[in-house]
Amino acid sequence: MNKYTYCLYNGKRPVSWVSAILLVLALVFSGAGLAEVPNAVPPEGEHKGDDVPQPIHFPHDTHAKINEINCMYCHTYARRSKVAGIPPTSKCMGCHSVIATDSDRIKKLTEYWEKNESPPWKKVHDVPDYVHFTHEKHMKRFLFDNEDMEVERVSEVCAFCHGEVKDMEVANKVKPLNMGFCQRCHEANGGPSDCWACHK
């Protein structure tokens, strides 16, 4: 145990994501695949993003498509915070201390790990500083509070704004993520239209 265990004081409400996890588990075992995300109109708009060289050539397809790992397994904060989060290096090592340890990419990852460093990933998706975007709310609307939607199909919701990442190796930006893009989607799906809902 970490000797420096700090006692968590978080103001008023104890943060509880137990309920969220239970929900995830419940949904994993229910329902069959549907053609499109129910109760949702996917946003329209395309963007031709540049290739982004990353410190480690991370193959999303291997993880999300071939091995069918749920997006939220790594981007674990998406359901409970503004940001989806780049997975902590410890999470990568959780598998890759035993899986594919002889590949060049994993060797490089292990090097970072042993130096007590995280790989300096390059940012691909971003919104301006004056935008308050929260993953949590969108996941709630399109996934967890969406009656006919199963949680293992989360990648289809992610794809609204991130494209078919499971078909990419290193992720590219393929949606414009500008105000018009957001606004059209909000109008089609009943999102808030109050300026201060999204601007800060």
Partner: peptide, 21 residues
């Protein structure tokens, strides 16, 4: 906002209660 211009560095090993954001 351009892709690949900024670095975003993850936690190495976060405590359970640490949630970015």
């Amino acid at each position: 906002l351009e892709e690949g211009k900024e670095t975003v560095v993850s936690y190495l090993m976060p405590e359970e209660y640490v949630i970015p954001g």
